[in-house]
Design a protein around this nucleic acid. Structure first.
Lengths: 376, 376
DNA sequence: GATCTATCTGCAAACCTTTGCATTGAAGTA
DNA sequence: TACTTCAATGCAAAGGTTTGCAGATAGATC
């Protein structure tokens, strides 16, 4: 039933290799023949079998995109940017969701390995060593996690957390809490590290609550805990949790930002819709998606697959350049943060929320830190 | 570099066919041999090449899932349900997003065709005839669109729209508006049809505004228009638009539900977070995802691929059973609807929002309408 | 001891392409 | 005319796997 290259060859009276070339190397075939073949192909509804083609060329023109949780609105912009970038380069993106499950991640990488030319691993939850091991099976680009020797796209959440804490300190907050993210998240560790340091510098106390599932429910569940902690400001691992917290505090009758200020991370579109509107650290998700695709495809052209090669084994210690890209974040001040108990006191220059920094439209220009790494 | 079945065969001193059987038909190989082969495979890190396997078996154990817009929170529950159901059946799901673009849809079906065993087409925007044509290339299950001769999973949005209009009429509204969805959407047409009929029955006027992009921005953009229409109640094509409208009305200083009542469709999780909380028609998205996967896999076992068969062409007029499943929807009354200008007047029994129907946890039990269809 | 069975394994074709090399024929050059 | 050059096409191997068939070995039966 499915029409193959052979059918087209028979119909147009040429050899299958000519049909093949009509599609993959048109300049090698006589224009007259070409039109005839194309007509027959069109007639029969022939489409080259990509799997068979991949088997011999070693190129599928597909990219795998593994995501911790599609339901998290943080990811769609990244996905869409990756898809659009890939499309421009004549690639397709297949997305898969792991439900924040490390085992599912590994499973998916294996499943994708031979069906794609590379995999974008977003916010992985598995261990570094496993990632390294998998990277030997299929080209990998890691997003939101730093790994020596592997190409990574990072967002400077550390800087973001620092800005957030400084913003809160300037507003006169001293007792703060950090609503931590999920276990195994590099981003969560970065935020905690930076927030701790910034709090110390600002002379503020920071209570860490967590780890928590990075969802609205995760934030909601800790509202009581937050109130009991006696803090006047909270930085949440992401907007979803911040929004859940907003809800929880509202249910408890706690005023935001009158009694407690809340800051999120990500600047998902939803954060503009809550009441109060959420102050948050904007992360350049779209730029991350684009960059990740570029890095993957770059890697592909650097190290062409040995499709036909066969014979010689690749020498150990091949020099491979792996870049690590760090994208900038930015604090967006909205309505969920307000003056704290120490506003205007002691710390000169600590005014109420002034006309703070503003969100630039998708920064896009990375601070690049590239390095040569000797592959194993 | 990539280790193949041949390497394992060499290492364990057996023929490649034995290695193959060790994985795909273990009972046919001597236990001793099996453990030896498995040990070697483990040692070398061998994983069967799924593409090559698919080439000969005709089965990829992959399912394609084409989605109009991943950023729409309506879809993630459907995606996750489909993934989980597929996983139970030892299948993987690859998701692709089309940005509501009909051309991208077609393109993606072609790209996926030979790499998956079937495609789930969710809320397609392309024409019926094109869908039918594509269904000859790869098994298709259509979600959110009714097509004779193809397996479909539908949600009874007509019934939902009717309930919504009746609810509004009972509350004493007479002048209503419908915020239409995107062009090419079956769901949008269904809602309009049912809403019109229900409004007529209830003696209410219904102004249709649209078509609109099914996004928050789409709803926001029509807020002014809604106010000018002089209506006291609005039914929106989906929650996203309803939420945008809520925002827009708020900006215009129009009270919801005091001045205008708003109803959405979908019951996305966000609709519980807005202020006021959104009254909406809950659609069984998770059940739809599960059902669609089941129907696709059912179809697969009904019509096994002629992997080796070759010779005989399939007879024209093969009898194929295609089921159409209709899933129930349910009105969830929250805070965005309230009494209208005619509350308590004229229509007996029209009280203020009473303890209305409540959301059941994922109905899941479909009303099935199956039929035999003669395939072309 | 001969025959039969069951169990295990090997052989080779098949799936659908791509591609290096060989072949053909025509056009261009000396 | 004899030669080279070039464009267009065919040939056949290769890619990694599955699977029908046949061969081999061992044990069971008479």
């Amino acid at each position: 039933m499915p029409v193959t290259i052979r059918d087209v060859a028979r119909a147009s009276g040429v050899h299958i290799s000519t049909v093949s070339r009509t599609f993959s190397a048109p300049h090698l075939v006589n224009p007259e023949t070409r039109v005839r073949v194309l007509a027959c192909a069109e007639d029969l509804g022939y489409r080259p079998n990509r799997a068979a083609r991949a088997l011999i060329t070693g190129r599928t023109h597909n990219i795998g995109l593994i995501i911790a949780d599609i339901a998290n609105p943080f990811f769609p912009p990244l996905i869409k940017a990756a898809e659009s970038q890939a499309r421009h380069r004549d690639y397709h993106v297949f997305v898969a969701d792991t439900n924040e499950d490390a085992a599912a991640e590994e499973e998916l990488v294996h499943a994708l390995a031979k069906q794609v030319d590379g995999v974008l691993l977003c916010s992985p939850r598995m261990s570094n060593s496993l990632i390294e091991q998998l990277s030997r099976e299929v080209p990998l680009v890691v997003v939101n996690r730093q790994l020596a020797g592997l190409p990574c796209v990072l967002m400077d959440v550390g800087q973001g957390a620092r800005s957030a804490i400084e913003h809160l300190a300037r507003l006169g907050h001293r007792e703060m809490a950090l609503l931590g993210g999920p276990r195994g998240s590099w981003t969560s560790r970065e935020i905690r590290r930076a927030a701790n340091a910034a709090a110390r510098t600002a002379g503020a106390d920071l209570t860490v609550i967590g780890p928590n599932p990075p969802t609205e429910a995760g934030g909601l569940a800790q509202a009581e805990q937050v109130r009991r902690a006696g803090v006047t400001a909270v930085l949440a691992y992401n907007d979803l949790m911040a929004i859940g917290l907003l809800e929880g505090l509202d249910a408890l009758g706690v005023g935001v930002p009158q009694e407690i200020s809340v800051v999120g991370v990500d600047d998902i579109s939803l954060s503009r819709l809550t009441r109060p509107k959420l102050t948050t650290v904007a992360t350049p998700t779209a730029a991350a998606g684009r960059t990740a695709v570029d890095m993957l495809l770059q890697q592909e052209t650097d190290v062409p697959r040995t499709a036909r090669g066969g014979g010689a084994t690749v020498a150990v210690g091949v020099r491979r350049t792996t870049a690590q890209v760090m994208l900038q974040t930015e604090l967006v001040i909205r309505d969920s943060t307000g003056p704290g108990p120490y506003a205007g006191r002691e710390r000169p220059g600590a005014a109420a929320a002034g006309p703070g920094p503003h969100r630039r439209a998708d920064p896009g220009n990375p601070i690049v830190a590239a390095g040569d790494v000797v592959a194993s």
